[in-house]
């Protein structure tokens, strides 16, 4: 038996949670900043911190209000660096309306002809989410990644943005507006028991190169990790304390001992984080993956490189 009660909806959101994951108890919204060692680890930036409006939770976002959130957010993530929009170096595809709020597919395309020196990183941002910086992906210098697909949570009407940094340090942005899912869909874990029971289990799928005209030997990988990737932005119904967030914080994928893709992620990445990307294989060295979650649990696995269609 538990005490009858209601979920307290008057709570304000946590402000900023740094890499060490420090939850804020309810506090008036302000632009206060807690510790954050690097911009990339500022994964959990709160909406309230940016917009400074305590009543924001009740309001529905629009393109204009999403842009306003972004205007406040970009300095926190990228400082005063210039960001070039819609240059074609990076492209972003997502459904116009989220179907399942907890599982929205996002495809990022990088155009190698517009980034001769390669792309160093891509930061994925969902303006209106409680943790707008969904993830920052870093690519190995000769990884040859030109496509990256993942799945994110989308809480509200919002722009999704992919900001790519090329070898010269230029920032290029693509963005697309997404309508939140209607009805009973919520950006929460569907089957918590299952997510916890098989936590850390990984699955790797390897696909043949997609286009015949492609002169590289790029093949495609899909990495799946079982993890609830919990938000922590919720109270325990018994204690009324915030449930600590629990998500995959870092991930690194290598092949033949050279980095292909790494990620610093947050709670806007869907449960059972899932990444599909192409890359240029080298030799026949194996694929290794290491992931670390916010509890400090380390999950590792490795697979031989399959000679798929090469």
């Amino acid at each position: 038996m538990v005490e009858a009660g209601k979920v307290d909806m008057a709570r304000s959101k946590p402000l900023l949670i740094d890499g060490d994951i420090e939850m804020q108890l309810p506090t008036p919204a302000s632009r206060r900043r807690l510790r954050w060692p690097t911009a990339a680890s500022a994964i959990l930036l709160s909406l309230a911190a940016v917009a400074g409006l305590p009543g924001m939770a009740a309001a529905q976002q629009t393109m204009a209000s999403s842009d306003k959130i972004w205007a406040g957010l970009r300095g926190d993530v990228f400082g005063d660096r210039n960001i070039l929009a819609d240059t074609g170096l990076v492209r972003l595809e997502a459904p116009k309306r989220a179907q399942d709020a907890a599982l929205v597919p996002v495809d990022i395309y990088l155009d190698p002809s517009r980034a001769p020196g390669g792309v160093k990183s891509v930061t994925l941002i969902i303006d209106a989410n409680p943790a707008p910086v969904a993830a920052t992906f870093q690519f190995g210098p000769d990884a040859g990644v030109t496509r990256l697909s993942t799945r994110v949570r989308v809480d509200d009407y919002s722009y999704i943005r992919a900001i790519a940094e090329n070898a010269d340090g230029e920032l290029h942005m693509a963005s697309t507006f997404i309508k939140a899912s209607g009805g009973c869909s919520a950006p929460a874990v569907k089957n918590t028991a299952e997510a916890l029971a098989s936590m850390g289990k990984m699955k790797l799928r390897q696909f043949a190169p997609q286009s015949e005209g492609n002169m590289t030997k790029a093949q495609e990988l899909q990495l799946m990790i079982r993890h609830p990737n919990n938000s922590g932005l919720q109270r325990d119904p018994l204690t009324q304390y915030f449930i600590p967030p629990h998500f995959v914080r870092t991930l690194s994928i290598s092949q033949a001992d050279r980095p292909i893709l790494s990620m610093e992620g947050g709670i806007s990445i869907s449960e059972d984080p899932n990444f599909r990307f192409d890359f240029t294989a080298q030799g026949d060295g194996e694929i290794r993956v290491e992931a670390v979650d916010t509890d400090g649990q380390v999950f590792k696995d490795q697979w031989p490189l399959q000679a798929v269609g090469l």
Binding site: V2, G182, V189, A193
Partner: peptide, 20 residues
């Protein structure tokens, strides 16, 4: 599991249904 499920979603439901 209902208390846990609603703890994770209640806030979102109240917000998203306001629109609907």
């Amino acid at each position: 599991n209902l208390p846990r499920a609603l703890a994770a979603r209640g806030d979102h439901y109240l917000k998203s249904y306001r629109r609907q």
